[in-house]
Nucleic acid binder design. Structure first.
Lengths: 159, 159
DNA sequence: TCATTGTTGATACTTGGTCTCATTTAGAGG
DNA sequence: CCTCTAAATGAGACCAAGTATCAACAATGA
């Protein structure tokens, strides 16, 4: 079993458990979509997802895909972000509070956390608002793509 | 002239200047749309904007509205945010780096800045990414709507 | 096995936004 | 004031991301 597959099965188990937790039924379409989502190694667009799902079972409707996506978002297992070129969904298994960076080259996402996470809340209060929720979306280039950009042998800042 | 109108004319002037700065032509449709945008006292959805524009001049096409919106975004005079219920555009005249809070009740937005604005960049570097850009969207309740929620006479935290 | 109720897929619809393309027009130069 | 040209326009088709509706279906508990 490869590392990727281990990650997949963990994701799958977590997602199935999320269904249980809400008293939802285990159905074949759901299972199929969950497997596809779990198999995604990176963030994906709704079209990518629906295409891959259709490849496995062309009878599964677009609506069901979106419905499940919404369930998973509700359970905090998937996050949606608005990238410059379209919607992106990201699998997200970490439990504590965190944020995501998405690689603008390959779509891979990483999580990170801030030293001082209440800074935003405080800043907002200073202008008289009561904060409801906030969204932090970060885009950048992942280590692997940075490497590829700057082939080995060529130093980082030649100057 | 009311306060609102002063704000309007400032916004209008800034926006027209943005056209000049890019060597763009002053046309009637643009002028009309700019006036409507400047007259918005709060964040607005594209449909709201197109409706108001159509009320002034039904011949102005939807495409032109979106085209101008894009121009203004490029010039940093308007920001787009993805609220839970649809896209929102916000007029944004401040020049230094800042963020926005949007009132979930009335749509009014305020700006604020963070003490330590590089915290995100540093956190992202710690996981090996090079940050490209980030988006911080904050939703909350503005002072006025808070007041309305909690009518005067009734103390804030009655215990 | 059966009944209940959650789930599904089809389909139509909405919103946000882009693309194309023929027509119009702003504004520079004479 | 006229003329020319590139920029801008509006119509309309098109696409992606969702949501709403609803009749048919199927997972589970009894």
């Amino acid at each position: 079993m490869t590392e990727g597959q281990i990650g997949e099965s963990v994701a799958l188990r977590l997602m199935e458990r999320a269904l249980d937790a809400q008293g939802l039924r285990h159905t074949l379409p759901r299972r199929t979509i969950l497997e596809v989502v779990a198999g995604m190694g990176h963030s994906f667009t709704p079209t990518e997802l629906t295409e891959q799902v259709a490849r496995r079972d062309p009878h599964i409707g677009r609506a069901s895909v979106f419905r499940l996506l919404q369930l998973l978002r509700g359970a905090g297992l998937v996050e949606r972000l608005h990238s410059p070129d379209g919607e992106l969904y990201t699998l997200c298994l970490a439990t504590e509070h965190h944020h995501h960076v998405t690689c603008t080259v390959c779509g891979r996402t990483a999580t990170f956390s801030l030293e001082d996470d209440d800074a935003v809340g405080r800043a907002v209060e200073r202008v008289g608002y009561r904060m409801d929720h906030h969204v932090l979306q970060v885009f950048g280039v992942c280590p692997a793509c940075l490497q590829r950009e700057r082939p080995p042998g060529r130093p980082e800042a030649p100057q």
